[in-house]
Design a protein around this nucleic acid. Sequence first.
DNA 1: CGGTTTTGACCCGCGC
DNA 2: GCGCGGGTCAAAACCG
Length: 271
Amino acid sequence: MDDGSSCPTDSAGLLPPFAGSPTAEGLEEKLRRVREENRRLAGTLGAILADRPDLRALARAPASAVATTRAPSGSASNAAREEAAGVTVEPQPKVRTVCARAEPADTDANLGVKDGYQWRKYGKKVTRDNPHPRSYFRCAFAPSCPVKKKVQRDAEDRSKLVATYEGEHNHAKSPEREFVGNESTGHAGSRPCSVSINPSGCTIRLEDMTNHGSGSRLDLETIRREVVTPEFQKLLVEKMVNSLKNDADFMHALTYAVAERILENIPARLS
DNA sequence: CGGTTTTGACCCGCGC
DNA sequence: GCGCGGGTCAAAACCG
């Protein structure tokens, strides 16, 4: 799933898997049915895309430009907040895969704490198809939280990380880790920050607010009170929405996810 | 000293 | 039934 060429959510992902013994007649019959199905789907897709130039452009775009995952569904809003450092994401209710760029200094341990949640590593394993070890994480914020996360470097591209999330959090993000994300300083988690969103990179920059104004220093309690106010949160949400609206990559990923969701339902309607 | 990470051992599902 | 491989456990090591 590295460059998307083998991504199961490409055109091949529209085809249902087959089971049973692969006799020549059976395979020919399956091939014939697959071709018919593809013709029907192509026709339906063409009709859908006829009046949507943005989706047409997206359909032509390389799969690597959008997320690589198994059958996608659900809200794409998670995409924006996942993995602060240049990430393409597609969410899924139970299992979803996130691809991210790895900083050279990243270690297996700190790969687990970049998405706003607190992770506890409980295992490491070298798998057969990848020379890089796979790390296993559990959500450390709530002991009862069922979410697990697997992180492994891409077998061919060391700079690419693949994180697989299983389950959904049954709690809010850890407040202490909420501000983790300014990895260049490594101190953002313990300092009061302001939030600015970079529309081009889908990243949220956390700026030090301890030098607020001309030397006047805001104390932590003041900032905490400010941050939890509905006004601040509303402003933050509005800012995020505006930034995401202006982010072509995000909009492409979103429309791609919506298009795929629609296509998922087409075979059931036609049959 | 308590929490976290490491790592070898173990468990379990799956294919043959 | 057996072997393989992925996932998890748990004791030891490590770290702040």
